[in-house]
């Protein structure tokens, strides 16, 4: 299985990459870790005429703290997220989530930017980004714009990214001290995509929920934010009754595609269960 022919470009800066994208037009595709794109090209589901490899652009890598946010270069790999002490301390949800993605070899190559950009509802990063209230820096010929993760994912293989833009950086506001977190993912084996998965960030005030973000992986054409469940939980205690109701509200918005992982009814039920478990685990970790 060998991809169809293409020309290969390896720019050294974001500016050069943007220029190349503009010159080459719609025939060009960005290559990040290649672990979604190359398999699709091998199967001839994608046949770009040009690949613009972002792999040689040093400014697209790295994890740093800047003021009240964490900044992650789009070409930072899942492996690097997993091993980051800064993230383990400040944004542990991202470390937990990255550990659920694919397998060790794929994580050495797969990038956070590629996982966000690919547009498959089974990708795990979009739900983590929604739960963490991340923003994305998009760089194009007219410069940079910053857009919120919430609202970025429009549908299957469809995001707000324009054809001449590159996702260059991910910005995550530092979670409030004492926040609880969890990513619960049901999969059949290592390297499998989610049958259902839920990301939760939770802040408690005494016994009641001060704020909560809930996002669902592979439960519809794109990542879903469980807004009704979030609104319902605000001000409530976390107990069996509220967990059941939150899970029910999350299940109500699910429209999973039946496949070899299960039929729609099963997947919706599993989404409810992952939501319940993620809320429980986040609650156990929250201090407030």
């Amino acid at each position: 299985m060998i991809p169809a022919g293409f020309d290969y470009h390896a720019p050294r800066s974001v500016a050069d990459a943007v220029k190349l994208l503009g010159e080459l037009g719609p025939e060009a595709k960005l290559l990040a870790g290649g672990h979604s794109l190359l398999p699709m090209m091998k199967l001839r589901f994608a046949e770009p005429g040009h690949l613009v490899d972002l792999g040689r652009i040093a400014e697209l890598r790295g994890i740093s703290e800047a003021g009240k946010e964490i900044r992650i270069g789009a070409m930072t790999t899942e492996h690097e997220l997993l091993r980051s002490k800064l993230l383990a301390e400040k944004v542990p949800l991202l470390v937990e989530g990255a550990g659920w993605i694919a397998d060790p070899q794929v994580r050495y190559k797969g990038t956070i930017g590629g996982d966000i950009s690919h547009g498959d509802p089974a990708n795990d990063q979009p739900a983590l980004m929604l739960a963490l209230e991340a923003s994305f820096v998009l760089t194009g010929p007219k410069g940079e714009r910053v857009v919120k993760a919430d609202g970025y994912f429009l549908g299957l293989y469809s995001t707000q990214l324009a054809e001449d833009e590159i996702l260059t950086q991910i910005r995550i506001p530092l979670p409030a001290p004492g926040s609880g977190w969890s990513y619960q993912k049901l999969k059949r084996k290592t390297g499998d995509f989610a049958t259902a998965a839920t990301a939760v960030m939770l802040q408690m005030k005494g016994k009641s929920v001060a704020s909560v973000a809930i996002a669902l992986t592979n439960a519809g054409p794109t990542v879903l934010k469980a807004r009704d469940a979030e609104a319902y939980l605000k001000g409530k205690a976390i107990d069996d009754a509220s967990l059941n109701e939150a899970a029910r509200l999350a299940m109500k918005i699910c429209q999973p595609t039946p496949d070899q992982r299960g039929d729609a009814e099963y997947k919706v039920a599993m989404c409810g269960e992952m939501t319940r478990r993620a809320l429980q685990a986040a609650h156990a970790r929250a201090k407030g």
Binding site: G34, H35, P39, V106
Partner: peptide
Amino acid sequence: SVKACTVL
């Protein structure tokens, strides 16, 4: 560690 079938 990488899978050489998925690297150009």
